[in-house]
Computed example of a mutant assay.
Amino acid sequence: MQQDIVFSFFLIFSGALVLATLALYTRQPVLIAYIALGALIGPFGFGLIEHPESVADMADIGILFLLFLLGLDMQPSALFAVVRKALPVALASSAVFFLAGFGLPVVFGFTLQDGIIIGLAMMFSSTIIGLKLLPTTVLHHKHMGELMIGLLLLQDMLAILVLILLGVMEGNGTMPVWQPFAALPLIAAACYLIVKGALLPLITRFDRFQEYLFILAIGWCLAVAEAAKLVGLTHEIGAFIAGVTLATSPIAQYIAISLKPLRDFFLVMFFFALGAQFNLQLLSDVALPAIVLAIVVLGLKPLAFRVLLGRFSERRELAWDVGFRLGQISEFSLLIAFVATESSLLSEQGALLIQATAILTFVVSSYIVVFNYPNPIAVSERLRRD
């Protein structure tokens, strides 16, 4: 049955209300309620929403706003310092996670090519999970928040490189491998000049008109996101650059507060779409390797970040905190699985293994953070930080 967008929104947000209420009463993370709702009423559940692709496309906007708001909380000088410090940790941890992700599938009978793609998908941590559970007002201006953002940005750049290499392996790569890395400083410099020369004077002149500032912020975020996509980066990196370059504005915090409800609206759809796209009927085919791989990811990632960050003079408590917050695989992993499957570089079972591992690690790592570390959706008053 074909539904219009209003009916789809009714199902998503009414269902989210019911399951989120149940989750809060039973002291569970609300993110799990949104994912469970997608699995229940999506095409592989009761089929009430047969085509979640349009919802997933809209949900991507929530990720852009999330990265934009994070950028608004970071000064450029602090960002450059933390990226330099995080670079060796990001490279070393990615190598460790690749080896683990490559070896286990091969042991379970997957081909070497599947093992390579799965290993690549295991290298990254979820920007959405990690930053959604990071308190905005408490940690973004602290060293831990800056360190996490630096690690995630470097992982995003590595993910872009992987996606480009997959295009080259398929034979359809039209973009040089070096282009995104050359484009990044150029687009950042251009955005800085535009903010200084045009946006800040406009903000100063029309700062009494709240609706205008709201539109300016959204327009700037989406414009830079689209520009980044055109030069070979991702929408998410573009949105983050838009936020960082606007962080020097005197009303950066006002813009951040204004956009939070809009961000949360789209993020509900993101987690719903994640659950809706998971094929429960084929789960038995990869259940055992997915469970084993998820256990390895959930145990190895916190330990690896603890050891690597400890070697660079980070406190043990901070290193464990960062490690558990980044103890899952990424939405980029799902994108890698999709691109590799479309290019016939990854089998259907391999793609399903990545999807199942993503869901399992998203769920379990969310539980770990929600019940043990400060976050905006903690069920404990002691840990709840907005």
Rank of each mutant, 00 (worst) to 15 (best):
residue 14 S to R: 07
residue 104 L to R: 00
residue 364 V to L: 11
residue 239 A to Y: 05
residue 381 E to C: 05
residue 309 L to A: 04
residue 135 P to Y: 06
residue 258 S to L: 11
residue 353 L to E: 04
residue 350 G to N: 10
residue 262 L to A: 09
residue 167 G to W: 03
residue 268 V to Y: 00
residue 89 V to A: 11
residue 276 A to V: 02
residue 149 I to F: 12
residue 183 A to Q: 02
residue 114 D to N: 12
residue 73 D to I: 01
residue 202 L to A: 12
residue 243 G to M: 05
residue 232 G to M: 13
residue 188 A to E: 00
residue 161 L to K: 05
residue 340 A to F: 02
residue 267 L to K: 00
residue 181 F to V: 08
residue 224 V to A: 07
residue 263 R to D: 00
residue 27 R to V: 11
residue 66 L to W: 00
residue 332 F to V: 01
residue 328 Q to G: 02
residue 168 V to H: 14
residue 267 L to F: 00
residue 143 H to Q: 15
residue 342 E to A: 14
residue 234 T to C: 11
residue 187 I to W: 04
residue 63 I to L: 03
residue 197 G to R: 08
residue 236 E to S: 13
residue 180 P to A: 11
residue 125 S to G: 05
residue 136 T to G: 14
residue 382 R to S: 12
residue 340 A to C: 02
residue 161 L to R: 09
residue 116 I to H: 06
residue 274 L to E: 01
residue 257 I to N: 10
residue 124 F to R: 05
residue 44 F to K: 14
residue 116 I to K: 04
residue 289 P to M: 03
residue 48 L to M: 15
residue 170 E to A: 13
residue 14 S to M: 15
residue 140 H to A: 10
residue 99 L to P: 00
residue 294 A to I: 10
residue 44 F to Q: 13
residue 138 V to P: 02
residue 179 Q to T: 06
residue 332 F to Y: 11
residue 374 P to E: 05
residue 342 E to C: 06
residue 379 V to Q: 12
residue 284 S to N: 08
residue 373 Y to R: 15
residue 223 A to T: 15
residue 285 D to R: 08
residue 294 A to R: 01
residue 383 L to I: 07
residue 77 S to E: 13
residue 321 D to C: 06
residue 351 A to I: 00
residue 281 Q to L: 09
residue 28 Q to E: 12
residue 73 D to C: 07
residue 193 L to E: 08
residue 269 M to I: 01
residue 71 G to L: 02
residue 277 Q to A: 09
residue 336 I to V: 13
residue 28 Q to C: 10
residue 362 F to Q: 03
residue 326 L to E: 00
residue 136 T to I: 10
residue 141 H to C: 10
residue 194 I to F: 14
residue 69 L to Y: 04
residue 158 L to C: 03
residue 231 V to H: 12
residue 372 N to L: 12
residue 199 L to S: 00
residue 35 I to F: 12
residue 283 L to M: 07
residue 297 V to N: 01
residue 210 Q to M: 13
residue 163 L to H: 09
residue 141 H to S: 15
residue 337 A to S: 06
residue 46 F to L: 15
residue 281 Q to T: 08
residue 81 A to D: 05
residue 23 A to D: 11
residue 111 T to M: 05
residue 264 D to C: 00
residue 327 G to M: 04
residue 326 L to K: 03
residue 345 L to C: 02
residue 118 I to A: 06
residue 120 L to G: 06
residue 331 E to Q: 01
